[in-house]
Design a protein around this nucleic acid. Structure first.
Lengths: 226, 226
DNA sequence: GAACAATTCGAACGAACGTTCGAATACCTA
DNA sequence: TAGGTATTCGAACGTTCGTTCGAATTGTTC
């Protein structure tokens, strides 16, 4: 192989096709994350990898396929890491904690891919989009069923479960817009914080009712109709 | 020249420049929201408005300016509506509820603009980006100071306030990815739900500590009512 | 109707894009 | 070393893009 003099990789060992493919997609994720998928061109990717424009088409058939592989990879990484870790775990609360932690841990470790997944996956088309949505749905359904178990299924209300799951996903998936490692700490800290807030709120009585003021202050209708 | 015309008292039947501008930007928001900013072309926008391609440049100087105006408009709409409504309100908990409700109410009423704001604003450049970020920061700072008041400043920890504010924004700003009016209800319902979860968690003791052990009875207490 | 400004348009520009393809180069095995 | 496969490249293709500009159209005012 070319072992191109300035390809920026520390490894001097020979690279297999799979290793180079991984390298290319990781760089692609960085470029897509920084510039946005449609704004980033394969020529920019070429600058980032040290390869030629045309050379990239040896590793993917189209720009869309590159996007799909990035999204699919990190999405499956979260889902399958969680499923693997949760295998021998039956307590639903532990499973929920594990899901949040795994999601955040992998999000922080693969921030660019996660940004691409959150930001650009829905602009895929056809089969690529269908497959990503299917995996997303599998993940979402898993969270909903855990939440149902955590709550004990006594007050099973599908719409509340839906809102709870999507609110939690929202908090987690928004991270890439603000996370700064030196300020916000590691995945464990974030997971403890987010799950702490969520769990107390989710498990407390009257989850959909208006929250009582902690000092008993009656809450009046604040909204002026215009 | 293209400077804003001042044909003052045009009848309601005829469209003023400002009305037509608003119409064009609303359609642009729809097109950008559906196709993504960089994917959508001004030729598509032309199809959506019934005007010619070139005709649009009478209403904005560049595609970037159109994006900026859409984002700036809806962002200011939320912020200024909230500030106006909150003027005569001093209870911090009421202000927090008002902020969440206003945010969600305007998000649902201007879903396309909100999607564009959340999705594409950060791909602006130069002065446009700086101005959007400045307004965002004003909004964020407002929420943080409300959260500090709500908590009573007893356990003032800047990093916890930051995480709380950003988690709440995350839940709210993720909505455009999943909201379906017939399933998820109106802004009041969403606001009550999200704020309910958030508030109980945020105001409860030891907000960052790990929640009680899953084996403990504490979190698994049977939940009555309803 | 004439004069003028406000608005819209057709046609084109240069640039950038994703993609292709045959040739060139690097590597492996024998 | 020779021959074959794997990898990379330069150069181009056709398309689409944002933007421009002079002309045409519409609306308003005397």
């Amino acid at each position: 192989m070319r072992s191109s003099p300035t390809n920026g990789q520390a490894g001097e060992a020979r690279q297999t096709y799979d290793q180079k493919l991984e390298f290319v997609l990781r760089r692609a994720a960085e470029v897509f994350a920084e510039r946005g998928f449609h704004r980033a061109s394969i020529r920019e990717l070429a600058r980032a990898t040290g390869m030629s424009l045309a050379g990239h088409y040896y590793y993917f058939q189209s720009k869309d396929e590159a996007l799909f592989r990035i999204c699919d990879h990190v999405l499956r990484l979260i889902l399958e890491t969680f499923e693997e870790r949760a295998k021998a775990m039956d307590n639903p609360l532990e499973r929920l904690r594990l899901l949040v932690f795994t999601h955040l841990e992998i999000s922080l470790a693969h921030m660019q891919e996660m940004k691409v997944l959150s930001h650009e996956a829905e602009s895929l088309r056809g089969d690529y989009l269908a497959r990503i949505r299917q995996t997303k749905k599998r993940y979402y359904d898993g969270l909903v069923s855990i939440l149902r178990e955590v709550r004990g299924d006594r007050r099973g209300n599908g719409r509340e479960l839906r809102l709870a799951a999507l609110s939690l996903f929202g908090s987690m998936n928004w991270i890439y817009t603000w996370y700064r490692p030196e300020v916000d700490g590691d995945a464990k800290r974030l997971a403890d914080f987010m799950l702490g807030i969520f769990l107390r709120g989710y498990l407390a009585p009257h989850p959909v009712r208006r929250a009582a003021s902690p000092r008993g202050v009656a809450l009046r209708r604040p909204i002026r109709k215009e």
